[in-house]
Amino acid sequence: MQIGCCWFDDERQELINQSNATTWQLNKNEYWVLSLLAKHRGQVVPVELLSFPNDESYQQRISDVDLEEIVKNLRDYLGRSHRSLIELIPSQGIILYNKTIASRNSLFDSPNKAISYAQYILIILMTLIASFFVYSNLNGPDYITPDASRQFTTQDGNVANLYLYRSLSSDLNMDSLANEMADYLKVCKVMPWDAISATMSKDNYAISIVMKKRLATEWRFHNIKVTRDQLQYDFVTPEWLEKVNICG
């Protein structure tokens, strides 16, 4: 995939800068972040999906500090002309834009030079067109849409959200799974989380579940990974939810 002046080689896990003929061999965390951004290019990838890789080789979450450092390094490697392709949106996620908007100032290279009436009209038209273009393209980035989501009321009267994601090749009935999980979650004696996100692996055998709670000054996270021996095995039960601290 082409990212500005760089080519992202997904198989070799390399980012090749074609403007200076250098190659960056990405480490495990850098590759995970960039591959997820590339997969969902043009959309804001939530922090919780970036922080908890759906891979058994990862033993702990990628911290917010590490994510900020990865974004900084990627922007620096892309260079001044293309660094704006990647943006960190605080408390929300990271986005890899499809393109940058280049500005051209040739009409203003000589500020003391008089311009004709036709040039003046042209400047006004260009300004109006540019304003329309910026407004239409920068209304706000799209976010990754869950394959299924449910909002439910907990036993203590609070509202919580459930989000389910699957791979493009999966044929799971996510609506049915969302209904089943929401029915169990709404009867938890204690629900300590504001949002629960579950992401299925490509083969549907592994599931990564991330819970988050908004505290006074920060987010509190908890994640678990489940691997099933059989696809037919139904592991979500009220007892299991309590055992893994999804229900209190």
Rank of each mutant, 00 (worst) to 15 (best):
Q92Y: 07
S63R: 10
I16Q: 12
E11F: 04
E218F: 03
N204Y: 02
R41T: 06
V65N: 15
A178P: 01
T154Y: 06
L231E: 00
S106P: 01
S19R: 10
T154N: 11
S116L: 08
L49K: 04
F221S: 00
F221R: 00
N158T: 11
D55Y: 04
Y77L: 09
A102M: 15
Y205C: 09
I123H: 13
N29A: 14
C188G: 04
E87L: 03
W32F: 10
L34S: 02
L37F: 00
K213I: 01
S208W: 03
E11L: 10
P53N: 04
D229E: 03
A118F: 05
H82E: 12
Y77W: 02
S201H: 05
R75V: 08
E180T: 13
Y165N: 08
P146K: 06
E87H: 06
D183V: 01
D9G: 15
Q151G: 03
E242D: 12
C247D: 01
Y120F: 10
S106K: 07
I207W: 08
P141W: 03
K72S: 13
L177C: 11
V45W: 00
N137L: 11
D64W: 07
E69D: 08
P111E: 09
L215A: 05
N73S: 15
N29I: 09
S57R: 13
S136R: 14
V33C: 06
S208R: 08
I207N: 13
S81Y: 10
N98F: 04
K212D: 00
W240Y: 13
L74P: 09
S197D: 06
C188K: 02
M181V: 02
I16G: 08
Q18K: 11
Y233M: 07
N204S: 05
D171A: 15
I121N: 15
S197M: 00
M174S: 11
A195H: 03
R166M: 10
Y120G: 11
T237C: 08
V33D: 00
D55K: 01
K99N: 14
Y184W: 05
V44R: 03
W32V: 03
F221E: 00
D194L: 02
K212Q: 00
G248V: 01
A148G: 04
I94A: 05
T100S: 12
K189A: 12
L37R: 03
D171K: 15
K28M: 14
C6G: 04
M126P: 03
L125Q: 15
S201E: 04
E11P: 01
L26N: 02
I196Y: 01
D10F: 05
I121C: 14
C247E: 00
H222M: 13
S131G: 12
I129H: 15
Q60K: 12
C188L: 05
Q155P: 01
N161A: 10
Q119F: 04
V190W: 07
K225P: 06
L36V: 08
I123Q: 15
R12H: 15
N179W: 07
V244P: 02
R61A: 13
N204A: 03
Q119N: 11
W193K: 01
K39H: 05
V190D: 11
D156A: 11
R220D: 02
K113A: 10
I209S: 09
G93R: 01
Q155F: 07
I123C: 13
P111S: 11
D64K: 10
Y135D: 14
T145V: 12
D171Y: 14
V159W: 07
W24E: 12
F132K: 14
I95H: 03
